[in-house]
């Protein structure tokens, strides 16, 4: 859409489990960049670690929007990363066997992750168990720690 000289480019939407936050990919100075918005206020939320390593693709949010998973470009590698907006931590997530991640989906409770990659000419999906790696992000009142985060 042409509006004030700006062609609309909003792609790859991902809602938080509670429906209050929306992550999407926008064109920021020609670079596909993830953007997180609070839908109630319309305010764009600051992301501490995700202003670099574009292009970003396939954002995914946990229940309260605490965790934002996205695929980034680091050097010549595509890599899944997770920003923890509550603790201001950033988790890099190299894939096994040098697989190139194509899509990522974070479970609403942040207990697992699904990755799409290519293998032998076919699309494959692998599930990764995150319990013990991240605190669960559950509906209000249900937040609990399953185990310490390992760094």
């Amino acid at each position: 859409m042409q509006s004030n000289g700006f062609i609309s480019s909003q792609e790859d939407p991902a809602l938080s489990g509670d429906g209050r936050k929306l992550a999407l990919i926008v064109d920021r100075n020609g670079r596909a960049t993830v953007q997180l918005t609070d839908l109630r206020s319309g305010r764009v939320l600051p992301l501490r670690f995700l202003s670099r390593h574009q292009p970003h693709t396939s954002p995914s949010l946990s229940w309260n929007g605490r965790y934002l998973a996205v695929i980034t470009q680091r050097g010549n590698r595509r890599q899944v990363v997770i920003e923890d907006l509550l603790s201001s931590r950033f988790h890099q997530f190299p894939t096994l066997h040098h697989r190139v991640p194509i899509r990522v989906s974070l479970a609403p409770d942040a207990g697992s992750l699904a990755l799409q990659f290519a293998e032998n000419g076919q699309w494959r999906v692998e599930l990764i168990d995150l319990t013990g790696k991240l605190e669960l992000d559950q509906p209000a009142g249900a937040l609990r720690r399953t185990s310490d985060i390992r760094e």
């Binding site: 931590r89 950033f90 988790h91 997530f93 096994l96 168990d129 790696k133 985060i149 390992r150």
Partner: peptide, 15 residues
């Protein structure tokens, strides 16, 4: 992200 990044590479657990 210097000093605040962690890497899960050594402990990824497929299911």
């Amino acid at each position: 992200c210097i000093g605040l990044a962690s890497c899960m590479g050594g402990s990824i657990r497929p299911m």
